[in-house]
Amino acid sequence: MYAASDKRYQSMPYQRVGASGLKLPRISLGLWHNFGDVDRIENQKEIIFGAFDRGITHFDLANNYGPPAGSAERNFGRILREDLRGYRDELIISSKAGYYMWPGPYGEWGSKKNIIASCDQSLQRLGLDYLDIFYHHRPDPDTPLLETAQALDLLVRQGKALYIGVSNYSTAQTQAIAQIFKQLGTPFIIHQPQYNMFNRSIEQGLTDVLAAEHLGAITFSPLAQGLLTERYLNGIPADSRAARSSSPFLQPDNVEATLATVRQLHQIAVERGQSLAEMALAWNLRQPTVTSVLVGASRLSQLEDSLKALDHLDFSPEELQKIDQTLAQAQ
């Protein structure tokens, strides 16, 4: 039977989410990959237990995480039931709804029908009475924003979620739904956008809205799906995601075009006494509105490497200027 380390809160810094009372670890664990039915449960346990032993209290899921869809929630629910049940009040568990999950007109997007059913299904798979944070995973172009907001607000009033968040919402959409949540009195506290050195779009207005509305951000893909690591310094490995991915971002031509920039960023990291991945995570956390950064891990040692970023979070003005100049040259 797992017993958590007595030292789990000694080294992890925690930061308040916007103006709310909730604090998150500066690094959180995302279960997008490596926690589905295709992955060994023993390895999943090692990563999750290792994360909690190191002060990571926040575990981020979505209804469609796996593969297959739903299996990440089921597997985490099993681990929670068998080993972590006694620590439930020390954990922040989040999930999301919005992407395709089941056939027919109600299995995705942002209708009240989909959101309520999705949350109920997630709670059942996880074996929980409530989620700490429930997100709308993507904006719905066809459902009124008011309907989506009212559905999320209802989950809080039903006791199924403590806090509400959104993900992949634009600046204007975030501003609009924030105003609705204010009128409803909903505890809307967090946005989950993509953010990394190659995708800085949140700096074009979204961070200003988050600051003005007293919201926090938890960013995903901080390592640009592996590009901001040493893995690609010498080209595209045959077993890498870029070599086998259907993602436009990871197509070989796109990766090759960024390798010179990656190597320059790597040199800046070396001069800082960090790996490129450590610097990329620290760079995310330099942003005032970023409460936490989501990292994935296929093994515990990978997670341990990510946590080393916390040893050197400060940047000099000269370092930030050098990073900006390097990234500007790549555009």
Results as ranks from 00 to 15, higher is better:
R200G: 08
K96R: 05
W283K: 01
A97I: 02
L154G: 04
A269D: 01
L154V: 09
I48C: 03
L210H: 06
D83K: 14
G185D: 07
D305P: 00
H137P: 03
G77F: 11
S28E: 06
L146I: 14
E213Q: 15
G165K: 08
T261Y: 08
P193M: 10
I268L: 09
Y9P: 00
E203L: 10
R88W: 01
S246P: 01
G18D: 03
T219C: 11
L84V: 03
L294E: 02
G165I: 06
Q150P: 05
A280E: 01
A257K: 15
Q325A: 15
R74W: 02
A257E: 10
A212I: 00
F181E: 05
D239M: 00
E271M: 08
S275T: 14
I218T: 15
H214R: 15
S11G: 03
L300Q: 00
G36P: 10
Q274T: 08
D140F: 00
A328G: 08
G77L: 08
Y99P: 00
I268F: 04
S11E: 13
M1G: 13
T148W: 06
S245R: 12
W32N: 13
R138Q: 11
Y2V: 08
T57F: 07
L24A: 14
W109I: 03
L155T: 04
V255F: 03
L123P: 01
D89N: 14
A238W: 02
Y169G: 08
Y130Q: 09
H58D: 06
D208Q: 15
D39M: 07
T219K: 06
A238N: 13
Q194E: 14
L155E: 05
L233K: 11
N199E: 09
L310H: 04
N34S: 15
G159P: 05
F249S: 12
G216R: 11
K160N: 02
D239L: 01
S306Q: 09
Q10P: 00
N63L: 09
M101C: 04
R81F: 06
I92A: 05
F188N: 09
L307T: 02
A149Q: 10
T207I: 13
A328C: 08
Q331A: 15
E108G: 09
N234Q: 15
K308M: 05
G235I: 03
N75W: 10
N34F: 15
D305V: 05
A242G: 07
R299S: 13
L233P: 00
D53T: 01
S201V: 11
N234T: 13
I236Q: 04
L123S: 02
P139V: 09
G216P: 10
P222E: 12
L155K: 04
M101A: 13
F315C: 02
V156F: 05
I56G: 01
E213D: 11
Q15I: 10
P317R: 08
Y130C: 06
I189V: 12
T171D: 06
L126C: 00
Q264G: 11
K182T: 14
V255Y: 01
D39R: 10
S201F: 12
I202T: 03
Y130E: 05
Y169H: 15
R16G: 07
D6I: 12
P67Y: 10
E213M: 11
E319R: 14
P248Y: 10
L276V: 09
T57G: 05
P105H: 10
G226W: 06
S240N: 06
I236K: 05
V209I: 14
A212F: 10
F198M: 13
Y9E: 07
S240T: 04
